[in-house]
Design a protein around this nucleic acid. Sequence first.
DNA 1: GAGTGGTCTAGACCACGGT
DNA 2: CCGTGGTCTAGACCACTCG
Lengths: 248, 248
Amino acid sequence: MDNDQDDPAAATDYQPLYAQVKALITRRIATGDWKPGDMIPNEFQLANEYNVSQGTVRKALIAIEAERLIVRRQGRGTYVARHTREHALFHFFRMVDINEQRPVPTSQALSQNIVNASQELAKQLEVEPGTPLYHITRNRSLKASPAIYERIYTPVQMMPDLQIEIGKQMVDEMYVIYQERYGITIAHASERVAAIAASAEDARQLKIAKATPLLEITRIARDVSKVAVELRISRCRSDEFRYAAELN
Amino acid sequence: MDNDQDDPAAATDYQPLYAQVKALITRRIATGDWKPGDMIPNEFQLANEYNVSQGTVRKALIAIEAERLIVRRQGRGTYVARHTREHALFHFFRMVDINEQRPVPTSQALSQNIVNASQELAKQLEVEPGTPLYHITRNRSLKASPAIYERIYTPVQMMPDLQIEIGKQMVDEMYVIYQERYGITIAHASERVAAIAASAEDARQLKIAKATPLLEITRIARDVSKVAVELRISRCRSDEFRYAAELN
DNA sequence: GAGTGGTCTAGACCACGGT
DNA sequence: CCGTGGTCTAGACCACTCG
């Protein structure tokens, strides 16, 4: 009682109670114990389960909500966040047109095959070189004209039997598929934007002149546990569209 | 009881106590009542002043801290945030090199004059067309080679007698100057990134071939009250550098 | 009306930073 | 040692949603 430091780890491992509760709840969501769309127990039930006060649970829940893992609604309850198409687009699709409107993209898959991870791909996706990866290419149109040519890589092991219909409009965003089919929630992404000259392939796909300047957006998407799930390289027309970022 | 909507204002004007306290404290910072670097009264003093409990003040302070307007330090006190060069760069300079290192830019002003806002500039800076603006051009080097050519516009009225030394290394970031000389704290910025082909001017400034693809970053920077303070158009080499964004 | 999250208060104790 | 912010608890009351 008078000395909690007899465990030397305590000094470095110390986490406030609410942070511990937050970690416990987060784990139950990450493991699929509570699934997207589920309502989780109320604050008093959780407080009782973890033997803390309701205020401590509340602080944990507010922190989890800030990470968009849960949605809390007064009078209703607390729910595990679900990736809707709107949500996926709102959080992860950053292109705006020159009038500051957010266009809604339509997507059409062009090809799907399996490749073994090169050194470069392996490094980015944090897997061993040679790991089998799906390689999907697709076209995305903004305002009814082709604007983005995209290559997507994701480990086969994470998404057994992933099948994308080729040549048809995709109904769901990839992240909705990951969540609904495999229980993988994309929670974070890191993007790097470069300016490049359109290759012959880009020019053909986007119906533009070769060497037109394009935005190349390289994105690593990670799940709730920060595990890399997808590498996506998007080449975007930049004549009518811009990549948008807000710094706060 | 059955109808709280008889006063239409009540529905829209209602703010929780902590939000009102937050607004009051924020205003005192925005007006310069408390200046960057100042220590503000402790939670109990504020609670007493505003006739609320210390817990309510705390919630307001946590919210203000989340907006990076204040810094709270255990055992020390709560301080109004100050723009250091490190802070300005960390929050507003988003370029990384191809090895994911953040290069530290050096800047050299090329010119400073006054222009009257065109329709386009006026719209972006939210001022009347014709409003006098400073127009500053500068070169920025990353890792000792010229990498960014930048045009900066800011209303003369906001920064009377702004003088930038031409042709010399700039010691301070622009945002440090705005804060220290004029008490204007840049708190938000909105960026739009495009890919463009280098103009003859860009090519000369950046010592690259004409028509090389460049990143063009257009930024509107705003103060604590969301008033537009600066428009900045940066053209960046994209061969060794990338624009970085994290989506959470 | 019952149940949920949201706000607010009050007070205890801890951890940190300086005197 | 004192004063600061940080954590935690306990309980009251409010606002929203739904049956």
